[in-house]
Design a protein around this nucleic acid. Structure first.
Lengths: 108, 108
DNA sequence: TTTGTGTATTGACGAACGTCGATATGATGT
DNA sequence: ACATCATATCGACGTTCGTCAATACACAAA
């Protein structure tokens, strides 16, 4: 029986951080939040999300926390309200994560 | 007490499919597989993955299935071996999913 | 200080996920 | 036919995830 093929070199790149970043956005409601922040192009009050999304307030807060910990959004409290904003480099970091995966090998 | 802000319009776009696509790639080993397919720029035998990844064969097969069902890779059996290839539109579909989220609203 | 309002955190629950051993499938060689 | 090898599927297990009720926290107004 012949060998299957010239053996391919499996990439040994660090995909952990890219996977973590992508996991943070791999949820429909978190994508909705990000899209809202991008579409409005300004900070958005948490109450707008709790009003519009079919989720209870703690769940909205949970999704916002995940985006915050991934540093895809920033937030600022003013009085009773908290305003979320898209991190300036959020689209760039996500694009870079994908680009890092799909870039073809630079042959020596 | 004043209102928090001019109410922001929460995006009502369909984020389900984008989230499903992103979820398919939000795993370090699946990213490694995709990066390997991209770097080699040709089909890769399953055995190369089972050899190189610190996973048992059924687990590798499981990850390949998820990528296959997301139509990010295609596969072809030749004899005993099965060869996986990056779907031509895989990077494009992922970039488009992100772009769909971050595009600013086109104001009427 | 007390009362009320908006947001965050905690704890619990079911569902989905990643992993693996066992087994099935599909193809090759004897 | 039978044995062998590569890959896929199945079933079970522990872990992580999304969700919510209850509660805590932060701030504002009275």
């Amino acid at each position: 029986m012949q060998r299957c093929c010239p053996p391919a070199k499996v990439v040994r790149r660090d995909c952990e951080s890219a996977a973590a970043l992508l996991k943070a956005v791999a949820d429909p409601y978190r994508l909705t939040i990000l899209a809202t922040l991008a579409a409005n192009d300004r900070e958005v009050c948490v109450c707008d999300f709790t009003d519009a999304l079919p989720l209870n307030q703690p769940t909205v807060s949970h999704h916002l926390r995940i985006l915050r910990e991934a540093e895809l959004v920033t937030c600022e409290r003013r009085g009773t309200w908290v305003y979320y904003q898209l991190a300036a480099d959020a689209p760039g970091r996500l694009n870079a994560a994908l680009a890092g995966i799909f870039r073809k090998k630079v042959h020596a």
